[in-house]
């Protein structure tokens, strides 16, 4: 492998990892604060991608699609939380897994019903359709640079919100002891609903950004869901920082796996996860306490 090829793969890996972080951060937040194992998270990614496709077709611009789509998905997340997820806070993980699995089936069919089984391409915005030269043969698309930078900005924003705002303070308090927070007079139900819809919006945004790169197709959420679970487990469940480093690790491992061992590339990521868990059974940044 030449140096420029390594550089290209590294860039691709980081870019993929950053997108993955957007999905995984929502998953880990929802688990950390609400204690809900959300299998429908990948579906929100898929719905985001479909929404971007549909809105971009109507408005003629991916930017407008994102600006319109994210608030819509926030609202959608709020509705799902109020109508279904909120009924399960008192129940065990099993019921949550089952309910969200039912949602996966429902959303998958919904997208097939509305958009059919076809693969839909989404155009890259004209402004970002160029690419940068890396060495003599390789080049890196400008759109990938744009998504990486957007994800980085969002990661920094998330960090600020969680560590530097009142909402973030409540969120952290909710993650460590929601009952106590309620006793202190905070409306935990509202907090939970906000966190859930924020998680949905993060996943949907990742789907919207990824749409021009991966195209839009039924069932696209599932591979993302499983890989985000891997990210969350590697990072430590509930830890946003862990999700960030886990996502980068998984993104890079996956890209290099595809180049180095193409016949079993998809298994590489899981092998990495198994290795991390044998080394640290609660993930890189996992709390040492007993599982909730």
């Amino acid at each position: 492998m030449t140096l420029s090829l390594v550089a290209l793969q590294l860039l691709n890996g980081v870019e993929q990892g950053l997108l993955l972080f957007l999905v995984a951060s929502g998953l880990t937040l929802v688990f950390g604060v609400l204690g809900v194992l959300n299998f429908a998270h990948g579906s929100f990614y898929m719905l985001g991608a479909y929404l971007a496709f549909w809105l971009a077709e109507r408005t003629g611009s991916l930017l407008f699609a994102v600006l319109l789509g994210v608030p819509l998905m926030l609202l959608f997340g709020f509705l799902v939380e109020r109508l279904a997820v909120a009924r399960l806070y008192q129940r065990d993980h099993l019921s949550q897994v089952l309910l969200t699995y039912g949602l996966v089936l429902l959303f998958n069919e919904l997208s097939r019903l509305l958009f059919g089984n076809d693969v839909h391409p989404v155009a890259t915005p004209a402004l970002l359709s160029g690419s940068f030269k890396l060495g003599e043969v390789q080049s890196w698309p400008a759109y990938r640079l744009f998504t990486s930078l957007s994800c980085l900005v969002i990661a920094l924003l998330l960090r600020y919100v969680i560590l530097g705002t009142r909402f973030g303070m409540r969120l952290r308090a909710g993650a460590s002891n929601a009952e106590m927070l309620e006793v202190l007079g905070v409306d935990v139900r509202k907090l939970f609903a906000r966190v859930f819809s924020a998680g949905v919006a993060l996943a949907a945004l990742a789907g919207m950004l990824a749409a021009p790169l991966t195209t839009v197709y039924p069932g696209m959420g599932e591979s993302v869901l499983v890989i985000s679970f891997v990210v969350v487990v590697i990072g430590g469940i509930g830890s946003v920082r862990g999700a960030f480093f886990g996502a980068l690790l998984v993104g890079i491992a996956d890209t290099f796996g595809k180049v180095l061992v193409p016949s079993v590339s998809s298994a590489v990521v899981y092998a990495v996860m198994a290795a991390v868990l044998i080394w640290r059974p609660r993930g890189l940044f996992g709390a040492p306490a007993e599982a909730r």
């Binding site: 993980h93 897994v97 969350v232 487990v233 469940i237 868990l277 059974p281 609660r282 007993e290 599982a291």
Partner: peptide, 9 residues
Amino acid sequence: AAGVYFIMV
């Protein structure tokens, strides 16, 4: 692993 980690693993 225990609990949720077990499910994920």
